[in-house]
Design a protein around this nucleic acid. Sequence first.
DNA 1: CTCATTGCAAAGCCTTTGCATGGAG
DNA 2: CTCCATGCAAAGGCTTTGCAATGAG
Lengths: 155, 155
Amino acid sequence: MENGKEFLHNYIKKHGLKKSAQRDKILDIFLSVGGHLSVDNLTEIVKEKHPEIGYSTIYRSLYLMQKAGIAERVELGDGITRYENMLGNKRHYHFVCQQCGKLIEFYDPLIESKIKISAAEADFSIERYRLDAFGVCSECRKKNNHSPKTKNSEG
Amino acid sequence: MENGKEFLHNYIKKHGLKKSAQRDKILDIFLSVGGHLSVDNLTEIVKEKHPEIGYSTIYRSLYLMQKAGIAERVELGDGITRYENMLGNKRHYHFVCQQCGKLIEFYDPLIESKIKISAAEADFSIERYRLDAFGVCSECRKKNNHSPKTKNSEG
DNA sequence: CTCATTGCAAAGCCTTTGCATGGAG
DNA sequence: CTCCATGCAAAGGCTTTGCAATGAG
């Protein structure tokens, strides 16, 4: 997926850091899984394939990858920290299904331009932004209709 | 600020719960401070005025207030959990200054309608959404020009 | 009276950190 | 050789939880 390793090595060289087998392995897994990978999930896979790699190395690599512009942290407020691959990934927003956890990406350039206009009006200089919508995806809504659950759990 | 207490008591009655002095006190403080209050900040103020109130009660009250629609949790990815007053508060988005931490609210109905259109296209049913833009506010940019800081901390 | 609420302290969870060892440049 | 990276386990920070006591309805 893109030349991620090259990207990482570039960053490493440029910053006087050092390559390492662990970093490469973690990067490989991260890139190969794709999508929005939770730290937990990544850790699981890494540990499975390379039990000798420690947790801290994973966290540290994620941090590095973020700095290098390879990964971006995604926080959805559910306590799970995810990272998504930024290489060759277009800007996008998220629909988050609160039932199955699925993430659907969407984008609308008009939204972006409107945000920029609002920023200009507020004299605010935007570095990055996020737009996440929470709800229920199509599939889950269908499932709900077929086998409705008790609905008075809380309000 | 609005009839928050009434709102809370309604919710409490409706759900077979019980009123308590602690909840009222916490609510009072929450409402009187306004804005985007961090749990830490709220706790500080509550403890100051009512040292006998425990941490857990604060967390539990926040949760209750959220359920009751009085407060909304705001997570900006900086590890600080904030809550904002939802009573008589219009829907809005955030500009988050990464230098001074200030939160500026903005809103554009067109953004909202565009999001809804995208949701309809994806057959996704939105319950709530958030839009946060991170950057530097006007004031901080001015400060930066007057007394520029070293700029090669990291990259 | 009954059951929700409280306060305390303990437990949890995820993440970071300190340190000695190993490895890249 | 020098200094960065690693792994382990311990430490952290924030939140939740268990439990006996308290208090609302």
